[in-house]
């Protein structure tokens, strides 16, 4: 009974994750310029990764606490902790990389297509000395 509920939760989160990762690909093809493509490519893949990695973490936790068939307890703990590490790395690095790419695109002269307002336009790209890119959350 409990195992069935777990299976359903895992299947639902797997399908949500796959759907959003697929949407990221479609968004990359459909949107008109770099900035909107970054919206699709960053938000959707991060959200999809949360659900896909979350389902694997759930499988690991189930094997850890109930010693599920096919996986020993050691396997379960390793699976859960290492997947959580990979998810943490994705969550930390994805938005920072997107910010760096958006800044680079704007400074190399790509204009947002169809923009109603551009406050940053015409500002000289200052040479910055201190980099605020390290995400020390």
């Amino acid at each position: 009974m409990l195992s069935g509920i777990f299976d359903i939760i895992i299947l639902v989160s797997l399908s949500i994750g796959v759907f959003f990762n697929f949407l990221a690909g479609v968004g990359l093809l459909r949107f008109p310029d770099v900035y909107t493509r970054l919206h699709a490519g960053t938000k959707c893949t991060t959200f999809g990764s949360i659900f896909l990695c979350g389902s694997i973490i759930l499988i690991g936790l189930r094997a850890w606490f109930f010693s599920y068939e096919g996986l020993t307890q050691t396997d379960g703990s390793t699976l859960a902790i290492h997947t959580a590490g990979a998810l943490f790395a994705i969550l930390l690095t994805n938005p920072t990389g997107a910010h760096a790419l958006a800044r680079a695109a704007h400074r190399s002269g790509v204009k947002p297509v169809g923009a109603v307002i551009d406050d940053l336009e015409g500002k000289p790209a200052k040479k910055t000395t201190s980099k605020k890119k390290e995400a020390e959350k």
Binding site: L23, V26, G27, R30, F31, P32, D33, Y35, T36, H39, A40, C44, H106, P112, V113, G114, A115, V116, I117, D118, D119, L120, E121
Partner: peptide, 13 residues
């Protein structure tokens, strides 16, 4: 927005 394609972009401060 991916499915409908409605966007109204801009850069604000």
């Amino acid at each position: 927005r991916v499915i409908t394609g409605k966007i109204n972009p801009g850069i604000v401060k």
